[in-house]
Amino acid sequence: MAHILVPTDFSKNAYNALFYATRLYPNEECIITLVHSFENLFSTNTSRIDIGRNEQLYDELERAAFDKLDTLKHEITLDSEGISLVIDMVTSAQPLYKIVNKLIINTNIDVVVMGTKGSSGIREVFLGSQTVKLIKKIKPVPVPVFVVPQSATFQAPTKVAYATDLKIDYAQYPLEIIKEVIRTHKSKLYITHIYNQMSPGQTVETNYRKLKHKLEDVSYTTHWLSSITKMEDALGLFINEHDINLLVLMYHKSGLLKKLFNKSFVDKLSFHSEIPLLILPESF
């Protein structure tokens, strides 16, 4: 039974992410934990003098949040007829990442699914939004994060591209979430390595062998994309040519993603703002 955590601020893009989450594991019962933080409302209206008023305010905000979560629960249940779901609700005035960390530790969360706001949201994802902050602070048990654009209409992730710089020692990294997606949706997996040298290099070839070993029980094709100047052009062209509907990236501080996470790449990716992302944390 998969356990999915879905943060929500009750916006349309958050609901779109929730809808996507309900379709990730269509063949098994899922637990979905809806999470809402009213940190901003509470901190803005808190009195430093009247402690009693603060407690009353907390209770009021908590009740209001639970009412909204309950409405959201009924709405997604109606939109998910025939899908076996168990929906839990959690709300708190703590920062979102603290709530998420506690739930990951205490309730065995498998994945997090978050929404983002179209092309501008995509830019925020790569340049330091709440999504990236959450990814950085998911500790001590990092989990994969699906990022679903507001403009995305649900498509089963049947064509999955994993863009990698192959600078990671894959012997240390489990890739079960990718394999689960492939098996569940009978997806095609495209391993894409973009390099700007005449040849990939020994380290890349060694890590590629380790990656192949990790993926030996699923089918995939490998694509070596040479791009001397603009890596984002090569990846964008690949996404178009193969009708990719899920892009997998590993979040880490150096290598391919550091080069890709710039304005040029983000502007290019904005044209693909309907494509959900699966981000594997750096220490995953």
Rank of each mutant, 00 (worst) to 15 (best):
Y170G: 00
V160Y: 05
P149V: 08
V148T: 04
T192P: 02
P174C: 10
Q155V: 05
P149E: 06
L189S: 04
Y173E: 09
A171W: 03
Y162V: 08
A163I: 14
D169I: 12
Q150L: 15
L175H: 09
T184S: 12
K159I: 01
Q150A: 15
A152R: 04
Q172C: 02
L166G: 05
F154M: 07
Y162Q: 08
V181S: 02
A161R: 09
K167M: 10
K186W: 00
A156I: 01
L166A: 05
V181P: 08
K179E: 12
L166C: 10
A152D: 00
K179I: 06
V148D: 00
T164H: 09
I191R: 07
K167P: 00
V147D: 01
T158A: 05
Y173L: 14
V145T: 07
F146L: 13
V145P: 03
T192Q: 03
A161L: 14
F146H: 05
A152Y: 02
V147Q: 00
R183Q: 13
S151R: 12
Y173S: 01
E176I: 10
T192R: 07
I194R: 04
Y173C: 04
E180T: 15
F154G: 02
V145H: 06
H193R: 05
F154W: 14
T158E: 07
I191G: 03
V147E: 05
A156V: 01
A152Q: 08
A152N: 02
H193E: 08
A163Q: 05
D165E: 11
A171K: 14
H193C: 08
E176C: 11
K186E: 09
L166I: 08
I168H: 10
L175N: 04
V147G: 02
F154S: 07
K188M: 01
V145Q: 00
L175P: 05
Y162I: 11
P157L: 04
S187P: 00
Y190I: 06
F154K: 08
T158C: 04
I191P: 01
A152M: 07
Q155S: 13
K179L: 09
K179C: 04
I182K: 10
V160I: 15
L166V: 06
P174I: 06
D165P: 15
A163W: 13
I194N: 01
E180A: 12
K159V: 05
I182Y: 01
A161D: 00
A171T: 14
K186A: 03
Q172V: 05
K188Q: 10
E176K: 13
T192N: 09
I182M: 09
I178G: 07
L175T: 07
L175C: 06
V147M: 05
D169F: 12
V160N: 02
Y173T: 10
S151Y: 04
I191L: 15
V145L: 03
I178D: 04
T164D: 06
P174N: 14
R183I: 12
Y190V: 01
T158Y: 02
T153V: 14
Y190Q: 03
I182T: 08
S151M: 10
T164G: 06
A156Y: 13
L175A: 07
K186G: 11
A163R: 08
K188I: 01
D169L: 11
I194F: 06
I194C: 03
L189T: 01
H185F: 10
Y173Q: 10
T164I: 12
S187D: 04
V148F: 02
D169Y: 11
K186S: 13
Y162W: 15
Y170K: 08
Q155H: 12
